[in-house]
Amino acid sequence: MDFQNILFQVNNSIAQITINRPSKLNALNKATIQELHEAFDAADKDKAVRVIIVTGSGEKAFVAGADISEFAHFDVENGSKLAQKGQELLFDFVENLSTPVIAAVNGFALGGGLELAMACHFRVASDNAKMGLPETSLGVIPGYGGTQRLPQLIGKGRAMELVMTAGMIDAQTALNYGLVNHVTTQDDLLPLAEKIASKIMRNSSVAISKAIKAVNANFKDGVDGFAVEIEEFGNCFGTEDFTEGTTAFLEKRKADFPGK
């Protein structure tokens, strides 16, 4: 695939997607969102890919926000369409992928950048990372899921404060809030993400995809998460991975999951 705004590579069953607009601190514009959609879609459909890691190029920013110049002149209708299209193409799309997605947050993750990180299944951060949703300082609110995912991750009160103040938190505070799972140095950020990915890849990809669906169900309006869990738990019994996993356990050997 030929991309202008991102880098895409697959090594050892890990797909790495790097937002590559260093002159714009990797800000998200329409073209980048489209390319990210295509890269995530390709990685999710590639049976050789077991984990996806998304990060930003350089040492300053994961994604410093949306490209404001693209929408500063929009009216109400165009603003609504911008948010809806972005959610469909990228943010909701990533959250509901069957392949695990790790955000490696290397520097600023602001506005749409934090919203992208929050759409991933979990996050690790470098110790220089700064995160926030500064949209109210521009006279707008987060439009790519920020008002929904941030309270889910850190609680309503803390999310309200961050949104209302348009403030930023550092990596250690993000760790204390539960916004990120781990904090490490910039040099160790991708190796840490890859180490976690390797642990994930020891397990059944089929079971993991069903677990993602069940966990996400708890955060969807009108959906009974327990019912989804029961259904997906039952579905696991019809998979080759279940047969291999239970057989390997009983035979006291390491499972070799076929991914079916």
Rank of each mutant, 00 (worst) to 15 (best):
K254Y: 04
K195S: 13
I154M: 06
N20I: 01
G245P: 10
R158G: 08
G245Y: 03
D92T: 00
V49S: 13
Q172D: 12
A193L: 04
D241T: 00
S98L: 11
K30L: 10
T247C: 12
R123F: 01
G157H: 11
D46P: 07
E70K: 08
G143R: 01
E161G: 09
S205P: 14
V228P: 09
A193P: 01
A125Y: 04
G222Y: 09
G112T: 00
A197Y: 04
Q84C: 05
G145E: 04
S204G: 11
E88F: 09
M160W: 01
G65I: 01
A171G: 04
F242A: 08
D127R: 07
E88N: 09
A211R: 01
K156Q: 14
S205Y: 01
I19G: 02
T185S: 15
L192R: 03
S209P: 12
S137F: 07
H37Q: 07
T32A: 14
K130V: 02
I212E: 13
L153W: 02
F93T: 00
M168E: 15
V105I: 14
A174H: 02
V140M: 15
Q148T: 14
G225F: 08
V10W: 04
G139I: 02
G155L: 10
V76I: 13
G245N: 05
A255N: 11
V10M: 06
D46C: 06
L7V: 00
A66V: 11
M131L: 15
G178D: 10
S137W: 05
N5F: 12
L28R: 02
M168D: 02
L110G: 02
K252G: 01
E232P: 09
S126A: 15
E95R: 15
V223F: 12
P22S: 06
S80N: 14
G143F: 06
Y177S: 08
G113F: 05
G222F: 12
F93N: 12
V10R: 06
V163L: 15
N106K: 08
G245A: 05
L36W: 03
G113S: 10
T147C: 13
A217N: 11
P142T: 00
D241E: 09
L190D: 05
L25W: 12
L82V: 01
P134R: 03
S204W: 06
V228S: 07
F91C: 06
H73M: 14
T243W: 08
F62I: 02
L192E: 09
P100A: 05
C236P: 00
T184L: 13
T99A: 05
I154L: 09
V101I: 10
V10I: 15
S198T: 08
F233G: 01
A217H: 10
C236A: 11
L175T: 00
E70A: 05
D75Q: 12
I52F: 10
Q34G: 05
M164S: 15
L133A: 09
V215N: 14
F74S: 09
N128Y: 02
L192D: 05
N128D: 12
I53T: 03
K252A: 10
V215D: 15
K85E: 15
A171V: 03
C236E: 13
G145I: 00
L175K: 14
K210R: 14
